[in-house]
């Protein structure tokens, strides 16, 4: 927890350090080796993470790549005005929140349930095998997974359609990827498939921290499997569940650009254009750089507000926070 170590005076560091200026420079010189080897990396971080903030000026201009930031025309808040009068922008917000919430609910229920079930496996070799296999999709890129999703859901011999037809649930192949209303489901489903095993790791780690004596005591009292799951295991991992939930609510605006980009297509655009995709399509696709930057700023600022708010909330509720 870095926050606790950092004194609030640091931001106006020069003022705070005035009386001890000599000692600050003295230690800077004394530790010059460490300062010198860390400096290149700090410079890289500033260059790639902080310098782009300078580019936010573009949002208040009619930016032309040929003219650059210094010569482009200033337009004030016009881009933001246009943004808030674009109906696709609001569709973008709706899609972002819709997909995020759906992913959040399925992802949580799925990975907690899986962790509980894996925890109940008694054969260690089988347990290990299940875990290893369940992690595999996490390490595979979205490019591969999107290919697998398209193949499995294909109307031309895709395995999902074949099974549904064999079971007589549908009579002819259903076009999953071309149905706008199903896109959120495809996003949540593919995310669940890819990440369920990986996300269960943290709960399994929390479960292994539960004192085994409690289970023994419950056995003596004659508690059954379900009783032990609901009265010992679940309460035991509740702090972990709470903090992870709060933190991911803070990340609601981040749907995952690659996944959305790769799975969406023109047929489902009304349900697939999230804020991230909106910025990409308007900026890189149509060359409306200033407008897209304005949308990006909106996204970044709201995301930061969400993260800090929910982090504070988590601190007051559980005394734990990410930073």
């Amino acid at each position: 927890m870095i926050k606790a170590e950092v004194s609030p005076k640091l931001e106006n560091g020069s003022v705070a350090l005035m009386p001890k200026k000599k000692s600050f420079f003295a230690s800077l010189v004394r530790q010059k080796d460490l300062v010198l080897i860390t400096l290149p990396f700090a410079a890289l971080l500033i260059l790639f993470n902080y310098v782009p903030l300078w580019g936010w000026i573009m949002a208040f201009q009619n930016y032309k790549p040929g003219l650059g930031i210094f010569n482009s025309k200033w337009v004030g808040f016009k881009n933001f005005y246009d943004l808030f009068h674009d109906s696709y922008f609001f569709l973008g917000i709706r899609n972002t929140l819709g997909i995020s919430l759906l992913k959040l609910v399925t992802g949580y229920l799925g990975s907690i349930t899986l962790a509980l079930l894996i925890n109940e496996i008694k054969n260690l070799a089988f347990k290990k095998t299940v875990q290893t296999i369940s992690y595999l999709p996490h390490f595979v890129s979205w490019v591969v997974v999107s290919g697998l999703v398209y193949t499995c859901l294909s109307t031309d011999g895709g395995v999902v359609n074949e099974i549904l037809m064999k079971l007589h649930i549908i009579s002819e192949p259903f076009n999953f990827m071309g149905t706008p209303k199903l896109f959120w489901g495809v996003m949540a489903g593919s995310d669940l498939w890819k990440e369920i095993g990986w996300n269960s790791i943290i709960y399994l780690a929390a479960m292994s921290g539960i004192n085994p004596d409690i289970y023994e005591a419950a056995d003596i009292d004659g508690a059954g499997r379900f009783r032990k799951i609901f009265s010992i295991t679940l309460p035991g991992i509740l702090p972990t569940i709470k903090i992870l939930l709060i933190l991911s609510v803070g990340n609601l605006l981040t749907v995952g650009f690659e996944q959305t980009y790769l799975l969406s297509n023109n047929m489902v655009i009304d349900y697939s254009q999230t804020l991230e995709l909106y910025v990409y399509n308007y900026g890189m696709g149509m060359g409306r750089y200033s407008f897209a930057t304005a949308a990006g700023i909106f996204n970044s600022v709201v995301a930061l507000i969400l993260v800090t708010t929910f982090n504070k909330l988590s601190k007051t509720i559980s005394g734990e926070s990410a930073f």
Binding site: L10, L34, A42, P65, M284, S300, L304, F323
Partner: peptide, 30 residues
Amino acid sequence: QKSFVLNKFYSYLFVFSMYFSGGLIPGYFL
């Protein structure tokens, strides 16, 4: 290293970068 002079400055600098980014378009022009 708690005694490192730039410890606090670096902590702020690196941690903040986890939660914030300039975005796609400014990044591209950079």
